[in-house]
């Protein structure tokens, strides 16, 4: 086994030389996770907003359930999606198992509760401040949702980034439904797991470095946005 320094140098070499295999994996990862976040946002944001402004029986239970779903174990989601998509499963005819689409489905299941729950929190908080003002302007509860979403856009972007962070770093679900097939469903996290076990540390390290870069970028952006928002609120108080 070669020294760590040497592996690391090779890893940097892979990144900087634009190694096509490495970058194909990175691109697939981004494609899958961005698509998953996009779909999860389309489902989760209206769902969260409805829970925030709607008043219906079972609302409290739904909120508790949603918050609990934020902590879904990825391998269990992987198992559920696997059962759904497997040849004998209810959606088996679609032949989606071991495709990037299956990975997107799994990540959507993981990310939707996160985006929905954070949206619910944000919109409910804003609603407390906006409700009377909007009512005095003749706006109905339902019609106030676009205004609340628009004025909460910074916080909602944070929710999207949190969802993206979860999706891109997740390994258990995508390896089960994607199968980690070379050039087809191999993404950053699954490659790192595989290559490390094979002893090919250079590729694992290179992908790890990029993944950490993305993670830091995402959380950095989240906290910067949060700080900007918080600062304005503090000055307001």
């Amino acid at each position: 086994m070669q020294g760590f320094a040497q592996e690391f140098t090779m890893a940097m070499g892979l990144i900087l030389s634009g190694d096509p295999e490495l970058w194909a994996i990175v691109l697939l990862s981004l494609r899958v996770s961005l698509m998953a976040v996009l779909i999860a946002a389309a489902i989760g944001m209206p769902m969260g907003a409805a829970l925030a402004v709607g008043r219906f029986p079972g609302r409290r239970v739904a909120i508790v359930l949603l918050n609990a779903l934020m902590g879904l174990p990825p391998v269990v989601v992987g198992l559920m999606v696997y059962l759904m998509l497997s040849r004998s499963g209810p959606l088996g005819v679609l032949e989606l198992l071991y495709t990037p689409t299956a990975m997107i489905v799994a990540q959507v299941v993981l990310v939707t509760p996160i985006i929905a729950a954070l949206t619910r929190q944000t919109v409910e908080m804003l609603d407390a401040e906006y409700a009377e003002q909007l009512r005095s302007l003749g706006v109905s509860r339902l019609a106030s949702v676009p205004t609340l979403l628009w004025d909460g856009r910074v916080a909602l972007l944070t929710a999207l980034l949190a969802g993206f962070g979860r999706a891109i770093a997740e390994v258990g679900a995508v390896i089960m439904v994607g199968g980690n097939i070379n050039h087809v469903t191999r993404v950053m996290t699954t490659t790192i797991a595989l290559e490390t076990s094979k002893g090919n540390l250079a590729l694992a390290l290179a992908l790890g470095t990029i993944l950490i870069g993305i993670a830091i970028g995402v959380t950095g952006t989240v906290s910067l946005l949060g700080a900007r928002n918080g600062q304005q609120e503090m000055r307001h108080a």
Partner: peptide, 25 residues
């Protein structure tokens, strides 16, 4: 038009942005 007890301006909107809120709606 209703003026509430507290000014109730939204800190993430500028003064013009706050005044514009009813017009946007």
């Amino acid at each position: 038009g209703y003026v509430f007890q507290a000014a109730g301006l939204y800190p993430w909107r500028t003064i013009a942005g706050n005044i514009r809120l009813p017009l946007e709606i």
